[in-house]
């Protein structure tokens, strides 16, 4: 005969299972609504696009704007690099002040030091990506007048070299400052194996944070790729942007997805946790 005490957990288990199924159904309905709304949104954009094309609409950058772009874009990286250098030097000076006053125990000061160095690393990462963008933009703006705009082309090339040098030197400085406070850290920014060596010198909490941040980045990339694909598809239909942007977005999307999934499989197969 079963005791009442034994029956109670079994009853709760059945209730939990039923609640779980209800929750699953609700989630599925929400998902279905989202899919239908997305499909309706896509259809609307498509219809609007086709109608716009029928009116003879073609996106043209006004001649004056194109002229300003042509003059400014090649110099953008030099300006960005100089601005970044000044900003980063100021942040490093702030770091040095906090570090000089730090007694090794004050957690607020330690957090401020971490924040300053994180600011520097974020600035260099974003700066480098912007640098590639402005270099592309500069070259695009110069293409039609390349034969008579030697100084613009030179500025674009010097700009990307200068910006890259600022970013790498700033990363090196920030990493060296981290190593001063955390001597267990290993890795040299100039070494191609820097990331691998750095992670190997991180402890369990730091690795956990890196892995969590990587997962967030993966999810953000997935969302961004979907949005970019829609934009590229719309661009292909409306602005005659061609198939190339869609191929590029698909390549990035696939790389992110396969990299993540094969990484998960490797972890399941071999890793010790």
């Amino acid at each position: 005969m079963r005791d009442k005490k034994d029956e109670a957990p079994a009853g709760r288990g059945a209730q939990d299972a039923s609640a779980g199924k209800r929750g699953e159904r609700r989630t599925f309905i929400k998902f279905l609504i989202l899919v239908l709304l997305s499909a309706a949104g896509g259809a609307l954009v498509g219809i609007a696009g086709v109608k716009l094309i029928k009116t003879g609409f073609t996106p043209v950058i006004p001649a004056q704007a194109a002229g300003v772009l042509r003059m400014a874009a090649p110099w953008a990286n030099l300006v960005l690099g100089a601005g970044m250098l000044a900003g980063i030097l100021l942040r490093i000076r702030t770091y040095r002040k906090i570090r000089a006053a730090w007694d090794g125990e004050d957690e607020d000061a330690a957090e401020r030091m971490d924040e300053v160095l994180t600011d520097v690393l974020i600035a260099t990462a974003v700066g480098q990506i912007l640098g590639y963008f402005f270099f592309g933009l500069g070259m695009y703006a110069l293409l039609p007048v390349m034969d008579r705009s030697g100084e613009g082309a030179l500025a674009a090339i010097l700009g990307i070299i200068f910006l890259t040098a600022v970013c790498i030197a700033s990363q090196k400085r920030a990493v060296d400052l981290v190593k001063e406070v955390n001597p267990e850290k290993r890795g040299n920014v100039y070494d191609m194996r820097f990331h691998k060596v750095w992670i190997e010198s991180c402890d369990e909490l730091e690795r956990l944070r890196i892995y969590q941040a990587s997962y967030r980045a993966y999810k953000a990339t997935q969302a961004a790729c979907l949005i970019l694909w829609i934009l590229c598809f719309t661009g292909m239909l409306l602005f005659d942007a061609g198939l190339f942007p869609i191929v590029v977005v698909t390549a990035v999307w696939m790389t992110s997805c396969i990299g993540y999934l094969t990484g998960c499989r490797k972890k399941n197969d071999k890793s010790r946790w």
């Binding site: 090794g104 125990e105 406070v181 955390n182 001597p183 267990e184 402890d203 369990e204 909490l205 730091e206």
Partner: peptide, 15 residues
């Protein structure tokens, strides 16, 4: 201090 404790146990001060 926290840094020394980290060194003794092979983790960072932050941990």
């Amino acid at each position: 201090n926290q840094s020394e404790m980290g060194r003794l146990t092979g983790v960072s001060r932050q941990t």
